[in-house]
Design a protein around this nucleic acid. Structure first.
Lengths: 194, 194, 194, 194
DNA sequence: AATGAATGAGTTTTCATTCAT
DNA sequence: TATGAATGAAAACTCATTCAT
């Protein structure tokens, strides 16, 4: 890679990084000029690397999905498979809580392609979860509920807390504050009591 | 009421009705001009009846909260109290599904006053639910989970389906399609199995 | 005059009175709606009595000019003619200080006709003053200066204080505060010292 | 300075110049769109260079005050100090007569900052004048009048002519037409005659 | 005569995007 | 490749004036 190309990549990365931060903080309606300022590049430079604001968002969501996908561990045959999955899931989200909140909260502002990618990520997670649940049914008596529903209940609960962060945890991370309570509640719910 | 007043009220109602529809369809960022067009009045007329766009939204949310409040029945001492509450809850939401979705999905675009009103409505519902749950514990064995968490799980699940309506039910009402499944799943989860 | 006509006149007077007050307080750019509210009549009523806002202002200035004209006394053959004129002039202005300030300060917002009327008033005053000066020259040694200039110096000084009321007397009347100082300064200036 | 910067400065200057002309001609209530048209730039361009209309006015008044300040000469120890000051004062005003008239006539439309700057300029001039008067008292017998009053009489007279330009000199410059008469009248007034 | 709801042209400001340098 | 000045299409809101009642 030539020096020129390297520098180009660096600029591009810088923009992506700063866009991530600006959008996390101010939402996807934040002006592209703010991103340029944050990245220390000119306004026009953004459009050298990304044809439109939509394109920038798409790349951002693509990277984000990829990162999440590669971070979410699916502990297939563990006896505590579900719990481990949930713990890991929470940790992953917590690391990019603000951006994740924007993603689920401003879904309708996203370009179609970005929305689809994020959707696919969730579907993929749902499938992973379903697999784990299936395996876990052996070692743990679970409520007789379709695994889709099981996942949706979980993700619904988590998203509810995330979207109402200002209510539940205005200052710090919601996930950090409620992680354990959410997990234990959920596990309690899906378990058949003896 | 004189004819003049009637006509004024009609215009006001027409604007409110059309604003409700336009916001339901396009979100709260929809231009006031679109509402004027939909209502068949001039742009200026909107500001004769509502001092600002924010004011219009506040009135809209006020009416909506009031309607919901007066429609949500709280069947205190029924043996099927929880189930009846949930059925009723779903029916009420279903009637204004689109607007409800905008309300929870574009929370951050709302004027403070509107956000607070809607928040209070949800808190009020949470309290009603808690009361019912307490009573129901006698006639039905329930999971040993704080009633707040019980409500949040329910509302999280429902909101998740609403916010992902395009995924679950792109054409018709999500609630109509999933009402029974959501209720039965939820009841199954909170019940202690024998 | 029939009762009907009486009432009509009353409404008209009420509007004129309130317009005078509103314009005094907020300037001629004040909305006609504010005047209607102050007068306790409907917005449309204003345009029943005055075809346009300009027309209303014209009537207002006409009345005002008339009132001033009839209040300004021209003490022709007094030995203290000039001084008496100045004292009276100040008193007359002071009674409607705010409106007078608007008139000289927002001259360019006035309809042509109104501007002309107010101009004529000032010309008439200038002529009166010239006459007095001529008579006074007998009993008092005055600077050898054209009487037009004498008047303009006086009115310039007074208007300067009026237009900078916020500087000279932000709370109460400027004229009240500076009347004596302005008069004595002026008299000192025009007198030939021995 | 690069070509780019030069061009930017040119646009900025062009806007300032045209704003100066448009405001001079139509007053500060003139629409920003008119300025854009006069400058041959798009409406948005104005707001690239000036964050708000108020900001534009502030810059304009700042430049104007600066120009006036640097042009007004204070001939301290001259035997004809006062006369020279007045001549120079008139010349300076004459160069930007229209704008100066708007400034004193639409004072209340100005942003606070602009009003303050122009006020300070006048105060500064008043102080200069006071100094000159003090020195001149040696070489010329002057009326026994506070120097503040001396300045106010002068500026009152000049402003009166300026504000009534349409009366005194509808076509050309008032100052040009009346400069000498105003100065000689004023000098005659403040002098003690022997 | 009085009402007051409705009109619509006019105003400032924002911001993604373009393009000459 | 990067720059950043310039663009122009919105968007919310104001207010004198009209007209059916």
């Amino acid at each position: 890679m030539t020096t020129r190309e390297e520098q180009k990549n660096q600029t591009r990365s810088k923009i992506l990084k700063c866009a991530f931060e600006v959008f996390s903080k101010n939402g996807f309606a934040a002006p592209t000029l703010d991103i340029a300022k944050a990245a220390g590049v000119s306004h026009g430079t953004i459009f050298v690397h990304f044809s439109t604001k939509e394109d920038l968002i798409i790349q951002l969501v693509r990277n984000f999905s990829f990162k999440l996908r590669s971070t979410i561990i699916v502990p297939l045959s563990s006896p505590k498979g579900i719990e481990n999955f949930l713990i890991n899931y929470m940790d992953v989200i917590q690391k990019n809580e603000q951006f994740y909140i924007r993603l689920i909260g401003e879904k309708d502002l996203l370009p179609d392609e970005a929305r689809l990618m994020f959707l696919n990520l969730q579907l993929s997670n749902a499938r992973s979860f379903a697999t784990i649940v299936k395996l876990q049914r052996n070692s743990m008596k679970l409520k007789n509920i379709p695994s889709t529903m099981m996942f949706n209940t979980w993700i619904g609960l988590v998203h509810y807390y995330l979207l109402n962060k200002d209510l539940f945890s205005p200052k710090g991370s919601v996930i950090k504050k409620y992680r354990d309570e959410l997990i234990s509640t959920y596990l309690e719910l899906i378990r058949v009591q003896d």
